[in-house]
């Protein structure tokens, strides 16, 4: 035989949570309509950075590919020449591919990168309906050209050799001095 409490109070008590919640702020995120920013160091899609003159920071050293636990990165290096220069120094990444269907966004590649060429953005809307489009190539990964940058290949504009770039002893950019 249920007690009085069980017969009358308990069924009402169950609604107590509901009633209390009616006066609380709604926690639901209206995701696609209102996007909440991620944590600043969220591991999203990669980006290949550029020097302020537009040259690529990537030197094609393949250390990211070596660090990758999922074997999601493929890099092929090639030689910079005087006529065709993509990065300061001898070597640049001719082929750069990240397979986002393997990548676990762990960030070990970022730690391995000796020139800070590879970093991660906060972008996460990556879903696609086929496998081929989820292999991002170099042109998909390269950072956009900001004002003052010039599309490589071009000569080193900020210094005489790669040492100037790595040490940060840039010569003032042309358009800045003019302005």
């Amino acid at each position: 035989m249920p007690t009085l409490k069980e017969q009358f109070w308990d069924p009402v008590a169950g609604f107590g949570v509901t009633f209390r919640t009616m006066f609380k702020k709604v926690v639901t995120e209206q995701y696609p309509f209102e996007k909440k920013p991620t944590a600043p160091r969220f591991h999203g899609r990669h980006q290949l950075n550029r020097w302020p003159d537009g040259l690529e920071k990537c030197i094609g050293c393949e250390l990211c590919a070596w660090a990758c636990p999922a074997d999601a990165i493929y890099v092929e290096g090639a030689s910079n020449t005087e006529d065709e220069r993509y990065s300061p120094g001898e070597r640049y990444g001719r082929v750069y591919q990240i397979n986002y269907l393997r990548c676990i966004l762990c960030g070990l590649c970022i730690e391995a990168c000796p020139t800070r060429a590879l970093t991660m953005t906060n972008e996460y809307e990556l879903a696609d309906d086929n496998r081929a489009d989820l292999i991002y190539e170099k042109q998909d990964l390269l950072a956009p050209l900001l004002p003052g940058m010039e599309q490589p290949p071009h000569a080193m504009l900020l210094g005489d050799d790669e040492g100037d770039y790595y040490r940060g002893s840039f010569r003032p950019a042309k358009n800045e001095s003019e302005a």
């Binding site: 995120e29 995701y31 696609p32 996007k35 986002y100 269907l101 990548c103 676990i104 966004l105 762990c106 996460y124 809307e125 990556l126 879903a127 696609d128 309906d129 086929n130 496998r131 989820l134």
Partner: peptide, 28 residues
């Protein structure tokens, strides 16, 4: 790849993908 077994209509990268990524994939 589960597409070896069944036809896949949407691939969602991430390990694991955050709920926003799943919702994005579902909306796509």
């Amino acid at each position: 790849g589960v597409d070896h077994v069944v036809p896949v209509d949407m691939y969602l990268p991430g390990c694991p993908p955050r709920p926003e990524m799943l919702i994005d994939a579902i909306l796509k």
